[in-house]
Design a protein around this nucleic acid. Structure first.
Lengths: 386, 386
DNA sequence: TTTGTTAGTGAACTGCCTTTACTAAGTCGG
DNA sequence: CCGACTTAGTAAAGGCAGTTCACTAACAAA
């Protein structure tokens, strides 16, 4: 049964077309990583003693002391007094993030007509919120408007701002360049770079649905090992996190679920095709569908949309073995028969291993998801925390 | 338009349920990373001078010289004489991987009745191939059989073996534990650990479809930024790579596309439900579907299955913004009307941004995909090369 | 032959984490 | 009440990994 192989042309290395973007790692990068580890722990677990930090990160107490000293010098961390409670040994001094010492600016560009912004603390708590009508501005004008808006928010912050996070519709690459956002007339706009220059602050830009997923992951307690956030508004978008990382996709366009055909020979869609998910699941479409119906009929109509959604989600849930699907949008339309029918349909159409563990629930952060996610963009980019 | 927010309960940190598995990084890990960087370059680009390695990795020539010295001492790398051709300056000494100095053992457990194995060089070239009938063995007996089989392959290798890679059906976690593989009667079997102990060699185990994806990515020249490999045999499986990484999923069950419902009220499936993709796309199902038909009718039947596949793929392709879908299996059934109909259907049902760049082609490595991928498991696990 | 260019190495230095050894400050048990 | 134990935190020295700087080696071109 053994075959000696001679002369057979075996799989030959062929240069893989894509990028293999591995970069060198220096000791100082290790340092940055470990520093983030400490901040990450303090962020999620709250005040902790140096010794406990050492145990949690498996670094030594010496190293932790050193890192904490640096973080304290930067004003990011402070001592909070000894840990209460009686135990043996020297009492532990708690250290915690100075969450109120710095702030972040978050901006949500999802809405066509209003730019929504906020100043937030490092824990994602809102300090102030500000909206600005777009008045039809697009392209360069909109960038200028956005610049002024951000300047205003930075000025309004009561503490030093460590960065600006922006959730934008459209395709956004990893450098924060908006590859295309038709409604804004943005094509290849280096938004992050431009604003970073103009504001003199770190600016992070990502797709709005992706940003929402990040927000739910960090603040909504969602499972990062397999999470899809479906944003339902004027349109339908999705952001996906798998194995703890945002899914970007080949052309940074991952999450474009709104324009998948779900109804054969369905209604025409703004994109020029027919029967897209958006034609049945967007808020306007749903309002139209239930308009004038009594409760029972409306519920049936919503359940029908839910089943359609379930059919489209089933292959995705199955392929990615998702743990959770979160729906973000008006609860009166989404959080009832629609959501339940979607879950049921996905369960029916997938293996028990896949479907039984799945949750389909409403996003917990509601209208602030994108703002929260935008804040996480900054926390993650500047502090390595998420 | 500014709102001061007081007392509003803002998004509050909630411990994210999942794992946040970030581990500390030490300088020596940086070293290991940079070492892999060198091997990676030599693996993909072939013999290279130290100076060019320095430029490619952006490490200094000093560091590269040091790393190369270590790798040479380990016998992984060798000097290959000066680079031919006239140029100014001191002639460069080429160094290359000693690809024939070590070998790897690869095993493919996809088939229910035959264990397929091979000894391969570090570049994935086949040295010898060996098959062994399973004779109905399952559970512990199968593990024992597999142990003997691997021992035999290791003994048959003509060079020292750096590790064993195994592609297994079923759900396999990141530690190489087979969570469940019903046909093998394996439930929670720590396959990698057991074999590592018994063989005294590094053993890496992963799901077979995932392994196939890895093989295509490394040896097939597929785009790692968005790749789905569909393996069509007795059953249907899928392996996905996004943003350069394998997708594992919440319960390590990513890629379970075979049991997504694609035909309402369809034929009963072995899994107990109806209309699963496997009921129309598996090799037996396809053979049945075209049996006795003339060419034209057979083509029509295959195209119909292709359209069904396209409908199921469209949401996945769209959600992940995939660049390529590779189909692995019998070309006479798959590489014709079926494949073309699938591509066309996905294009019809997704946005141009998503569909126009998509390729749907046959896997280039054919029946050896899983073996090649198993080799990559070892290369990647032991040398950091993929 | 001289000049300039490129490849490779040796020495000194810096950054980062570790081990080891110490001090500080409490509880516990006789 | 006091020594034994336990835990928190720091100081000093050592090892490892990368860098810069300075050098030698080996060629082409002028």
């Amino acid at each position: 049964m053994t075959t000696a192989v001679t002369g057979r042309e075996a799989p030959r290395r062929r240069l893989s077309a894509g990028l293999r973007p591995t970069a060198k790692v220096l000791p100082e990068h290790a340092r940055a990583h470990n520093r983030s580890l400490v901040l990450q722990h303090l962020f999620h677990e709250g005040p902790t003693s140096r010794a406990d930090l050492a145990r949690a990160t498996s670094l030594t107490r010496v190293t932790i002391s050193d890192l904490v000293a640096v973080l304290m010098a930067e004003g990011l961390v402070e001592e909070l007094g000894v840990r209460p409670g009686q135990r043996v040994g020297k009492p532990a001094m708690l250290v915690g993030m100075r969450t109120s010492a710095y702030q972040v600016v978050a901006v949500d560009l999802t809405d066509d007509e209003v730019v929504r912004g906020a100043v937030m603390t490092l824990t994602g708590d809102l300090v102030l919120r500000r909206d600005l009508p777009v008045d039809g501005r697009t392209g360069t004008e909109l960038v200028d408007l956005l610049t002024r808006f951000c300047r205003g928010l930075v000025a309004a912050a009561s503490q030093p701002v460590i960065g600006v996070g922006i959730g934008s519709p459209g395709v956004v690459d990893s450098a924060g360049r908006v590859v295309e956002a038709p409604n804004r007339r943005w094509y290849d706009v280096p938004l992050a770079e431009t604003l970073t220059d103009r504001l003199g602050l770190a600016v992070h830009v990502a797709n709005d649905a992706n940003t929402a997923a990040l927000g739910e992951f960090t603040f909504g307690g969602a499972s990062g090992s397999g999470l899809l956030v479906l944003t339902v508004g004027e349109g339908v978008g999705a952001g996906i996190m798998v194995d703890g990382a945002r899914v970007r996709g080949h052309g940074d366009a991952a999450g474009e679920l709104g324009h998948v055909t779900v109804v054969d020979h369905g209604d025409p869609c703004a994109c020029g095709r027919r029967g897209c998910l958006e034609t049945v699941l967007s808020v306007p479409a749903l309002r139209r569908a239930v308009d004038g119906l009594d409760t029972e009929a409306a519920d049936a109509a919503l359940a029908s949309v839910g089943r359609t959604l379930g059919v489209a989600l089933a292959p995705v849930v199955s392929a990615l073995n998702l743990a959770e699907v979160l729906i973000s949008g008006p609860a009166d339309l989404l959080d009832g028969p629609l959501r339940e029918a979607a879950l049921e349909t996905v369960r029916e159409r997938t293996m028990p291993v896949i479907g039984s563990g799945l949750q389909v629930r409403m996003a917990t952060l509601d209208e602030d998801v994108v703002l929260a996610g935008a804040a996480v963009l900054v926390l993650s980019g500047q502090l390595g925390v998420s």
